[in-house]
Simulated scan of single mutants.
Amino acid sequence: MIRVDFLYKVKTSDLPQMMKKFEESIQAEFQSTPSNVKIEMAFYKENETTLISLNIYYNSEKDYELRTKFERSQQGWLNIWFKENDIFELVSQNVFFVQ
């Protein structure tokens, strides 16, 4: 199993818009096989900034790669997550093997 950790940085005032992005991401049109087996989200607020730690678990690295390929083939997904000058910064993305 693997865990993909995404760390996002967003202005706290933009947090509702960011949460809307996550909600849009679970629409039926973005469901695929393979998919994740678990998602965890945590927040850290400091002054005017919020850090969002999004951990997505997959059965294998191959499942993650296939899921990513599917996402990148969807124009709606690209519109949600890959706009120029968006409200968030992707600080890091790391893949960990879970035992």
Rank of each mutant, 00 (worst) to 15 (best):
F6N: 08
L7V: 13
K9G: 03
K9Y: 03
K9T: 03
V10D: 00
V10P: 01
K11Q: 15
T12P: 02
S13T: 07
D14S: 07
D14V: 00
D14Q: 05
L15R: 07
L15I: 06
L15Y: 03
P16C: 09
Q17L: 14
Q17D: 12
M18Q: 05
M18D: 01
K20N: 13
K21D: 11
I26Y: 12
Q27I: 10
A28N: 14
E29W: 02
F30R: 04
P34Y: 06
S35H: 15
E40C: 06
M41D: 12
F43I: 07
Y44N: 12
E46L: 11
T50F: 00
L51R: 02
I52Y: 01
N55Y: 09
I56W: 01
S60F: 05
S60A: 02
E61Q: 13
K62V: 13
D63F: 03
L66A: 07
L66I: 13
R67Q: 06
T68H: 03
K69S: 08
K69R: 06
F70P: 05
E71Q: 14
S73E: 11
S73V: 06
Q74R: 08
G76H: 09
W77Q: 03
L78P: 00
W81S: 05
F82C: 04
K83R: 11
K83D: 04
E84A: 09
E84D: 15
F88Y: 15
F88R: 02
F88N: 05
L90M: 12
S92A: 11
F96K: 08
